[in-house]
Design a protein around this nucleic acid. Sequence first.
DNA 1: ACAGGAATTCAGCAATGCCGAATCGTAGCG
DNA 2: CGCTACGATTCGGCATTGCTGAATTCCTGT
Lengths: 249, 249
Amino acid sequence: MPNRSERRSSIQSIDRAASILKALASGPRRLGVSELADRLRLARPTVHGLLQTLQAHGFVEQDRHSDKYQLGPGLLQLGYSYLDLNELASVRVGVMHGDSVVVIHHVFRPDSAFGVLEVGLQLPLHASALGKAILAFSPGQVLDDLLAESLPQLTKRTLGGAALRREVAGIRDQGVATERDEAVLGESSVAGPIFDHAGHAVGAIGVVDATERLFGRSLTKGVAAAVSEAARGVSRELGAARWPYAAEA
Amino acid sequence: MPNRSERRSSIQSIDRAASILKALASGPRRLGVSELADRLRLARPTVHGLLQTLQAHGFVEQDRHSDKYQLGPGLLQLGYSYLDLNELASVRVGVMHGDSVVVIHHVFRPDSAFGVLEVGLQLPLHASALGKAILAFSPGQVLDDLLAESLPQLTKRTLGGAALRREVAGIRDQGVATERDEAVLGESSVAGPIFDHAGHAVGAIGVVDATERLFGRSLTKGVAAAVSEAARGVSRELGAARWPYAAEA
DNA sequence: ACAGGAATTCAGCAATGCCGAATCGTAGCG
DNA sequence: CGCTACGATTCGGCATTGCTGAATTCCTGT
């Protein structure tokens, strides 16, 4: 990426506004002007002016009772726009059930090839991104038990036992699982594990789409980032302290 | 809210950055520097500088192939932080099933009083925010059929037929439904309808919490805004052109 | 009623953001 | 392959804007 001139590399007020938003997104979620000024080492009128402008756009709001500032609903709208932007054909949430993943939540769009409600659908653990994401962060015995039986080969790209072990190990490192044409030719998926407060992988969240749209030449960064963020967010809702959790032995 | 001095009421660069984000959140989701400059009536180097700073924070990203800019994953994180901020005890998604609403999706947190998985739970249409949100945007016959039978009075605050009609009419105006101590004393809920591409209310999304936390002296703005945004977002995923849709006769 | 602390306002200053001009990079066409 | 056109990016100078110290306002606790 080309570099800006030495003198200035970014716009200071945008940097400061972003710092305010990020400060409000972590740690104590409501902060006063002076607290923010201390944390960011800025003058209080500076922080106040930035907050007023952010508030005008709905990015922060001020709690009437305590005068403290917090993140505002305008961010949610932008966040959702970001998801919509990626035109994800189908978002699925699944939980492990025997040798399968059961879809418990499904958001779909009518113009997509995947326009049928899929809650209840069972997907193979070894041939779906949801399944691999769960396997990667489950006790090792779960994978051992699965591999004790022969894995159905659904397409020419379906992974065998040894290949599945290697891939699951890789997923532990990067957090996001992919599946490309392994269950149905022309259909692929990406998913991230969902952890509970004890750090157990209780499910996974991911997307499914036509292979050429999801991968093209390579997996688009936006999709992987979106899946990671979604998995992180749901895990946080469930009390997970971090994402991803390292798997138990 | 106190007014800034006449001279300046907000910080121009923050305003401009917000305009860029909002432009990218609506209409064509990927825009080039020149397109944004035209839309916002700014100089191209101005837009370029703002985009570079937004990109450094993950709020926008540049598509490698087309050089166009789009919203970035950092916004999703802030959006999720916003949801987390409100410490929503329990987010539920439900669909109508006879005289009930069936919870088909449930996000909960372990430290909450509502820490039990509720998928499959059936709630009364007349005494839940999910139910009222769906009723408000369903064909009138649905409400008529419901009122043809006597409504179980679950608490002293459970609405009767006439009161329910009035309240449902009010929900059509404002979009968001509330239920306060009407099914279980001490427990209340807020919800918004989910529309599909044809404008049908196919479900609702909302939160449930202790009455004193949800309402306090009055319903906190943040919760109503969050519910609206969530309902709007899910509806968009399902192809709804706007939110809320006016109900059919 | 008073003190203390935090938020907000004000006004002056200079640092920063802005933009016209120029350059670079790439795609399309002959 | 060379040329043209168009959009993105860089550069440098200028003045507008963002910033901040001081002051004021507001609110809470004693």
